[in-house]
Design a protein around this nucleic acid. Structure first.
Lengths: 205, 205
DNA sequence: CTATTTCCTTACCATTTGGTAAGTTTAACT
DNA sequence: AGTTAAACTTACCAAATGGTAAGGAAATAG
């Protein structure tokens, strides 16, 4: 019987759980199945995370760290106004493509009332507040059009989440080269953001 | 003990199941709970639908009938080319607003691999084929730009499904007046369709 | 070498789940 | 009235699930 490799059991559990949660959903995920797939007993999982919900929270948390790090990177750049937003959007789409499981998890956890949606809310609220404040200050100095920041942010958010559905649906329909729709979505989101926020953007009504 | 009302038990089961499936999901839905909420025994449900999956299929089927009827109505109108598409899009958004549970169900059932996704596929395929054929013929006579019809249709589809997420997320964030985002989405979808399909539409690149 | 903590296992359990089998009641038909 | 079929119920059950309790191995510390 081989002994425990360098990347600890805990990490492997998280990986496997992410996969299962994001593709099959929380309820359809069985601790026994995860354990078996790792050649480990269910109680090992419960030892590390005490409860199934705890496991989900840990998965969400790790994913959020991943995301927040990437966001931080953009925020620490010296991009201003519109360019900053554009960079953020690009970053998120890049991340979504590189790490599709994150999208699936986001989708799973986004349904209000679902287990883990509270956790998501807790993690997102600071980001949301920060973004809101920044946008408001940008609006004050006229670098941004005046609108409801929350509405814009949440719409952008749900565009990204919706992307998960789209990619999966297209793949299920046998359309493998799914990059084009993603690019289209990104363009759409950009336009939406531009129309909503960029004061220098000429509007066609 | 009151006796069975005019709208039979079967219909009431379907109503309740639709509600539960579309808000809590398939796995999180328990037959016992549905039964209890209707003041009926679980075996009554199984008598009418033999299995849980059968119940889901019946729910999906009824919802699809609902949808297909509405589609049929538009298709039987004498609208041509672009106007026809616009009418379809309007109809779907109207339906989605009037019957939010349908959106939730669609969302639940859209995830590939989910129980009921096969059924959805079976129901959608004829519609899809019909739409594809029509679009191809429109393309041949030059009333529509040449693109991949499936891609366009599926993108439109996932926009609508994504709407379910968006509405729920906004509501969870306490934004009640959720009509504006819906209108925005519809405009976006229209523009997407127009850009993809309308040969007379001036493109800005 | 011993004590302790970390990590993981065996054993067990209460509950819930979808589902089967076999009535029982109600309505419909003849 | 008697037969039949439909609609529901009571009685059960096997399987799976998340979780508790307690103990064993293995590394680490003293």
């Amino acid at each position: 019987m081989e002994k425990y490799e360098k990347f600890g059991t805990k990490e492997k559990i998280l990986d496997s759980a992410l996969e299962s949660f994001s593709t099959s959903g929380f309820d359809a995920t069985s601790l026994d199945v995860i354990a078996k797939s790792l050649g480990v007993r269910k109680q090992t999982i419960l030892y590390h995370f005490t409860t199934k919900k705890g496991l989900l929270n840990a998965v969400v948390e790790r994913a959020a760290e991943n995301l927040i790090d990437s966001i931080e990177e953009v925020l620490n750049s010296d991009l201003k106004g519109w360019e900053r937003i554009e960079a953020l959007a690009r970053m998120i789409f890049r991340l979504a493509l590189r790490e599709p499981l994150l999208l699936g998890l986001l989708r799973e956890v986004s349904r209000p009332g679902s287990v883990g949606s509270e956790r998501l809310k807790i993690l997102m609220t600071p980001l949301m507040d920060r973004a809101t404040l920044w946008m408001q200050s940008e609006m004050r100095v006229g670098r941004m059009r005046r609108t409801d920041p929350r509405l814009v942010i949440l719409s952008a958010y749900s565009t990204v989440v919706g992307l998960a559905t789209e990619i999966e649906v297209l793949r299920a329909a046998g359309i493998e080269q799914a990059l084009r729709p993603v690019a289209i979505r990104r363009r759409e989101l950009m336009r939406f953001l531009r129309v909503s926020l960029d004061p220098d953007y000429l509007q066609s009504r």
